[in-house]
């Protein structure tokens, strides 16, 4: 479920951000804004430049070009206090306990005494580490370390939380903890930048998403709008040959079917593709086809589609309807899958 908020005021504005490492351009002129109170997702495959972008947002990396502005917060110590950073690679002291880690970093942000202790207890509770608070983190599971990593970034109650792939390599229980924690914090008003290459997470959590590939921001909108650019759901129908014995007649029949499909209303795209050859009932080889139709109103299109196919005299072997997701958006935009 996407939280239903309508944030508008920009908290962070990124303009023409660029970073070169020697000859490699890791981030290539990226511009976007993160609005007050939203969860902004940054989605992209390995090496897209997500971490580099975050490092420039947080000020740990000097941009080659471009600017990062935070509403009402000048660069420097004040900005650092406003940002909470959860790095992609664990950054905790393994020889210290969970509590000691939290209290140490809280102390660097000026918390002390009772307030420091209370805040640590609060966060241990939130990430579900209360029972292991006084164990050294070297003995923690991977997921527990990740949860501690997250909690440290929250110790000083930042205004904007920069989360760099907080759920990578994490067991489902820890993942849930982190996920629910971020949701709750956001509902309490925390603005979040959430980096991931799991599109399910981004879809479920983020109000708006920026898609990065090879250092560029190739799309930036709400999940709904991004998916809408694909023109709706995709229907796949596998059909048998139209005129098995005559290749010429088959050509003609296919052309006629194509014309019918294109005429269907609410249908943004229709094509007929060859499918894998298969054996018919008698055991001889035949050449079926796949009909692929894209629509924003599948309920209305399906009956028309089925009757068009039967009118053409083709046997219908299977029919499937698939809702598109961010994965498809990425595929559409880059021609490749998010995970390779």
């Amino acid at each position: 479920m996407v939280p239903t908020q309508n944030p508008t005021a920009a908290l962070i504005t990124v303009n023409g951000l660029r970073k070169n490492f020697d000859s490699l351009t890791a981030v290539d002129g990226v511009s976007f804004e993160i609005r007050q109170g939203e969860v902004f997702g940054l989605l992209g495959p390995n090496g897209a430049g997500k971490t580099t972008t975050i490092s420039m947002l947080s000020g740990t990396l000097q941009p080659t070009a471009g600017t990062v502005n935070m509403a009402g917060v000048p660069e420097g110590p004040e900005r650092r206090r406003a940002l909470g950073i959860v790095p992609q690679d664990l950054a905790i002291y393994l020889k210290l306990t969970a509590r000691e880690n939290l209290e140490f970093f809280g102390g660097l942000y000026g918390l002390h005494g009772e307030a420091l202790k209370r805040r640590a207890i609060e966060l241990l509770e939130m990430v579900g580490l209360s029972e292991r608070a006084d164990s050294r983190s070297v003995d923690f599971s991977g997921g527990m370390k990740r949860r501690l990593n997250l909690a440290i970034g929250l110790m000083h109650s930042p205004r904007l939380l920069l989360l760099d792939e907080p759920t990578v390599g994490v067991d489902p229980q820890s993942r849930n903890h982190i996920f629910e924690g971020v949701k709750r914090l956001n509902s309490e008003g925390l603005t979040v930048l959430y980096t991931s290459h799991y599109m399910e997470e981004v879809e479920a959590l983020c109000h708006r998403v920026g898609i990065m590939d090879r250092g560029r921001l190739i799309a930036c909108d709400s999940v709904k709008n991004l998916i809408a650019t694909l023109g709706g759901s995709v229907v796949h129908a596998e059909i048998g040959p139209l005129s098995p014995d005559n290749a010429m007649q088959e050509e003609v029949a296919l052309a006629a079917l194509q014309a019918r499909l294109s005429a269907i209303e609410h249908c943004s795209e229709a094509e007929i593709l060859p499918a894998e050859p298969r054996q018919d009932i008698a055991g001889s080889e035949e050449n079926p086809h796949i009909v692929k139709v894209r629509t924003d109103a599948p309920g209305r299109v399906l009956p028309t589609l089925v009757s068009a196919i039967s009118a053409a005299g083709a046997p219908l072997y299977s029919l499937s309807l698939r809702e598109p997701n961010l994965e498809d958006v990425f595929l559409e935009l880059t021609g490749k899958s998010l995970r390779d």
Binding site: S58, G59, T60, P77, E78, R80, R81, L83, I85, P87, D89, L90, A91, I92, Y93, F105, L108, Y109, G110, I152
Partner: peptide
């Protein structure tokens, strides 16, 4: 190496 130095650099010190 452990990333804790960067984490300290993120703090206002």
């Amino acid at each position: 190496q452990e990333g804790t130095l960067r984490r300290m650099l993120n703090a206002p010190i």
